[in-house]
Write a protein that binds this DNA or RNA. Sequence first.
DNA 1: CAGTCACCTTGATTTAAATCAAGTATAGCA
DNA 2: TGCTATACTTGATTTAAATCAAGGTGACTG
Lengths: 248, 248
Amino acid sequence: MAQAIRLHQVSPLKASCHQCSLSNLCLPLAIEENDLDRLEDIVQQGKIYNRGEHIFDQSTPVRSCFAVKSGSIKTSIITEGGEEQVTGFFMPGELVGLDSMSSENYACTAKALERTSVCEFPVDRLEELTGKLPELQHHMYHLMSQEIQNSHQLAMLLSKNTAEERIAALLLSLSSRFRRRRMSATNFSLPMARNDIANFLGLAVETVSRVFTRFQNQGIIRARGREVELLDVEALQMVTRDFARQGQ
Amino acid sequence: MAQAIRLHQVSPLKASCHQCSLSNLCLPLAIEENDLDRLEDIVQQGKIYNRGEHIFDQSTPVRSCFAVKSGSIKTSIITEGGEEQVTGFFMPGELVGLDSMSSENYACTAKALERTSVCEFPVDRLEELTGKLPELQHHMYHLMSQEIQNSHQLAMLLSKNTAEERIAALLLSLSSRFRRRRMSATNFSLPMARNDIANFLGLAVETVSRVFTRFQNQGIIRARGREVELLDVEALQMVTRDFARQGQ
DNA sequence: CAGTCACCTTGATTTAAATCAAGTATAGCA
DNA sequence: TGCTATACTTGATTTAAATCAAGGTGACTG
């Protein structure tokens, strides 16, 4: 019994990556069964944030990166002038903070869009571990590359595409991400406000609203507030003329 | 003499990171003197590309990432439809291909903007080495984070800033990068065409041209073709209302 | 249960930059 | 040395989306 207590004290928040249903999307993906313990040793699990709470902001010294366990997170850069640029939305299994590895302070601000729980990976310990587990290191490089690619895709969307194309692309991206999480790909609830969508896509809120109603009138989607149903995915794919994103 | 020949045969292209003037910008930055040999072992140096030649494109299987040794490179994503989005310009000491680590094919196309020489780092050997040299691994994470941050900054520029602000920001970015390379920060020759600038910044060529002449009329810059002189850096900084980029 | 606030929608007007349309330099090449 | 192509500039017109302005909707709160 003394031991049970001790165990509880030593690792009250130790994660169970073994049982996590997201392990096939998250860091454990790359790891052998028997190395998983070593990852679990460094993870702190289960911290919960309410809607609107900050996980970190640009004045926070970097300590960890975070995997979304449930809920969702938006990241944004906030300038001196108080202007915001939303840089990403993160769903369960996705890693937040890769842009801040080995920076002094976080390069962005992360905010829970709803009640959200996260797993925390201290970057120094993560670096140590990736030095020992080549598979894990490889996976980190992969995730970071991916993040760069995503951001380039966003830049492309912003500089070359119309409001309709941008919104269609976002809806499709969300759709496929829901699908990978074994949730409906055609029937979901947007975790973010129209405002965040607008900001992310470099549009005015009014424009986002108008495009939503236009899509609705064309029978492509059905939207009531944040509840969205994709009625005609093919049509959406036609709208995004950039077919590279189609299978994303 | 036999030995001299042998040496020559074994490593005809082996880099001398030891003597490279760019080592303080490039990968060797992070490494102990005595570990530098191990980096040199995996580097292939001195491949030269002429203006307009491809280093790789989106159909090339990923083998290496590349450090610019002299000259400059532009990277872009080219879509099925043949549309191009320039994603970056790379100067000596900068690493190209970080968006493609652990992808099947390169995520972008890299093209020499002028006669350019590069050092080549095979990614598999680089990964091996970063597994052994924690400092080097840390530096890789740093560079990749940086790349994500840059791309987010670009997204921000594209979605929030006017044509003038974007161009001012680009000129300032180039300026500080020239300075870090101990070249004039106020008097340089643009490695890229107006077209590339336009594409990168999500503008039409005509707009770029007009902004250049406007800046010139305001006495902020002097531009003749690709030759640019920054006459009033402060004014340029005022134009980019995003003061975060100021000290970049 | 009314009141407030945040979020979303819709319409009218304005605007920055794209597009269209000529030119004019510049550089590479025969 | 001139020729052609490419790069760049300038002006006139159009346009997609921003801004301005006003309501509507829904959710939480005292």
